[in-house]
Design a binder for these strands. Structure first.
Length: 558
RNA sequence: GUCCCAGUAGCUCAGCUGGAUAGAGCAACAGCCUUCUAAGCUGUAGGCCGCAGGUUCGAGUCCUGCCUGGGACGCCA
């Protein structure tokens, strides 16, 4: 347990004992004690509303209870300096900040592992994200999904969950048939044959590129095959090329997946059939108008959904249900689906489906990514200037830089609309929040260099006189550093990746402020220099750990 | 028509499971570099938290209704 949590625990303990000493309530009547951090510093480091909560049980007014608690509170135990009763009965606790000094050696010891906790208790989570159709380039919405999903996984991992990242490949639908057809034609055309592209085929240049690549790799090996086999071959090859491209795009975006799950594999293994049969056996489906329906309204969906069309083909929903069943059968405690807003209609029916299969609804968590607007010069940008098509993930990262792109997406809650300000993201100035944080990190590196130059080189292994740390600014910085593990755990629990950038900004601010207030490198005072550098070092470690969660580099210099 | 998301300072957004006088960045204004990176710091100003009800000791946060903006609602995937 880290120092802040330990201290909070001690405070709770001291409060509980004080309540009992007063006889305000019996042990079992005491509610879970909530310690909140007041916005206003005049209200202490922590505040408790315990007295108000006990008012009913103790049959006394809250202020009176609070006074009693304060009188019997063991300050020593709780590292507290003073307690005050305020307002309607809040107990404001002012800590003796010296205990915070212990944060320094703790962070230095844990290094890259500082921030890790057991909060998730090993809960296994499968996060499915991006899952874009492989037939096109990844666009803005996917970029947001990739950035958010990846950060979320990093956060969950750090908070003690067992995480897997998965990409679901829709490789069984019409669009893949169309892909095979389009490739076939382009292939034949590339080899000089006079064949026409059908209207409904993919006309885009990327298909031609793949066809050329196939010609390059395999020559005319497929020309003599019968059409059906050729199509089958192109289906396979086309998918290979597209997936390779997809993986490369994502890798360059610093995102990788543990599993690429193929829809087709669900058909091959018979799991689609099996799912249908299970639903049938559970009495969840019925026949009407020649189609097979899933009675999803039983579980709160607004209408029933077709699983098998009257022409005998499956709707997309059935394999998707089979997919979720497969994920659950693999034994994950929680599934997280991160989708774009255009799929939100899907939530109710999928929740219905897993319940119909006998799983609790709570096992499936949806995160809906709302739309992204690119803004440039105060105007919305819809199309890429280069291609005339929608702006792709790759273009965006190239235009504004990967660090800024990842940071900007991670910075906002996924479920809100996002205006991505390209001018701001590109700007190499103080207006850009990414630089603010990275600058703080680089500044620490520069301090080490300065110290070495002035003959008081930082010794990470050296003895520290922690008592030399004793200022308001330093304690504020230490407190922020100490909050990191709890903050990560909270972000994981709420699936709120955006708290990380917010936190990093606050941490950077505390550091910049400290830096301006105190001279860190002072050859006249080597012991002081060492301990201040240690504090800077600890700050840098946390900045780096936090930036890593977001997928952003922590530069040594800028 | 039903559903989802949003509405908080001029702009972009935080506000964790309801808690005290609502925060940050940018923009505005006033200061701080012969000294560790000024991509920084310090301060000032700026708000009927969309509107109206309700729940309670207490609401930006929960409930209901309405308004505005964005999006989704197929035997497409």
């Amino acid at each position: 347990m880290n120092i802040l949590e330990e201290t909070k625990q001690n405070i709770r303990e001291a409060l509980r004992e004080a309540v009992l000493a007063n006889g305000f309530a019996k042990e079992e009547e005491i509610p879970t004690i909530i310690l909140e951090t007041p916005r206003d510093k005049n209200h202490g480091d922590y505040a408790s509303n315990l007295a108000m909560q006990l008012a009913r049980v103790a049959k006394k007014n809250p202020r009176e209870i609070a006074e009693g608690i304060v009188a019997h509170f063991d300050k020593e135990k709780a590292s507290a300096r003073t307690l005050e009763v305020a307002g309607p009965g809040f107990i404001n606790i002012f800590l003796d900040p010296r205990f915070l000094r212990q944060v320094i050696p703790a962070v230095l010891r844990d290094g890259a592992a500082y921030g890790r906790s057991e909060a998730g208790e090993g809960t296994s989570v499968l996060v499915e994200f991006v899952s874009a159709n492989p037939t096109g380039a990844l666009h803005l919405g996917h970029a947001r999904g990739a950035a958010v999903g990846d950060s979320l996984c990093n956060i969950l991992d750090m908070a003690g969950y067992k995480v897997e990242r998965e990409y679901y490949i829709n490789d069984a639908g019409n669009q893949i048939d169309k892909l095979a057809l389009s490739l076939d034609i382009r292939y034949l055309q590339a080899l000089g044959q006079n064949v026409e592209m059908p209207e409904d085929a993919y006309q885009g240049p990327d298909i031609m590129r793949i066809a050329d690549a196939i010609v390059n790799d395999h020559g005319d090996a497929f020309v003599s095959l019968p059409e059906k086999e050729r199509r089958e071959k192109f289906r396979e090859l086309g998918l290979d090329y597209l997936l390779e491209k997809l993986k490369a795009d994502l890798k360059d975006f610093r995102v990788s997946f543990d599993t690429w799950f193929s829809e087709t594999s669900l058909y091959m293994s018979g799991k689609v059939e099996e799912t249908l049969e299970t639903l049938r056996a559970n009495g969840e489906v019925y026949e009407e108008d020649g189609a097979t329906w899933f009675q999803s309204t039983r579980y709160g969906d607004d209408k029933d959904r077709v699983l098998v069309k009257n022409d005998g083909a499956y709707t997309y929903l059935l394999p998707d249900i089979a997919y979720h069943k497969d994920k659950l059968d693999r034994g994950f405690d929680t599934l997280v689906d991160l989708f774009g807003a255009d799929h939100h209609g899907y939530i109710a029916r999928m929740h219905a489906a897993i319940q119909a299969l006998g799983f609790p609804k709570e096992k499936l968590e949806f995160q809906v990514g709302q739309n992204v607007n690119l803004v440039k010069g105060g105007e919305r940008v819809k199309m890429s200037k280069r291609t005339g098509n929608a702006v792709t993930m790759r273009e965006l990262a190239e235009d504004v830089g990967l660090d800024a792109t990842r940071y900007f997406f991670a910075m906002r809650s996924v479920d809100t609309h996002l205006d991505f300000d390209m001018d701001l993201a590109v700007e190499e100035s103080n207006e850009n929040p990414v630089y603010y944080v990275q600058y703080a990190h680089a500044r620490v590196s520069s301090l080490f260099a300065q110290a070495a130059e002035k003959g008081v080189a930082y010794d990470p292994e050296g003895e520290l006189d922690l008592t030399l740390i004793d200022s308001e600014k330093a304690y504020e910085l230490l407190k922020k550093i100490g909050e990191f593990p709890e903050m990560v755990a909270g972000a994981a629990e709420q699936y709120a990746q955006h708290r990380i950038p917010n936190y990093l900004h606050e941490l950077s601010s505390a550091f910049h402020s400290y830096y301006n207030a105190e001279r860190i490198v002072d050859p006249e005072a080597p012991a002081l220099t060492q301990v201040r550098l240690a504090l800077a070092n600890a700050t840098q470690t946390v900045l780096r750990n936090g930036l890593t969660l977001v997928g952003v580099h922590a530069p040594e210099q800028m």
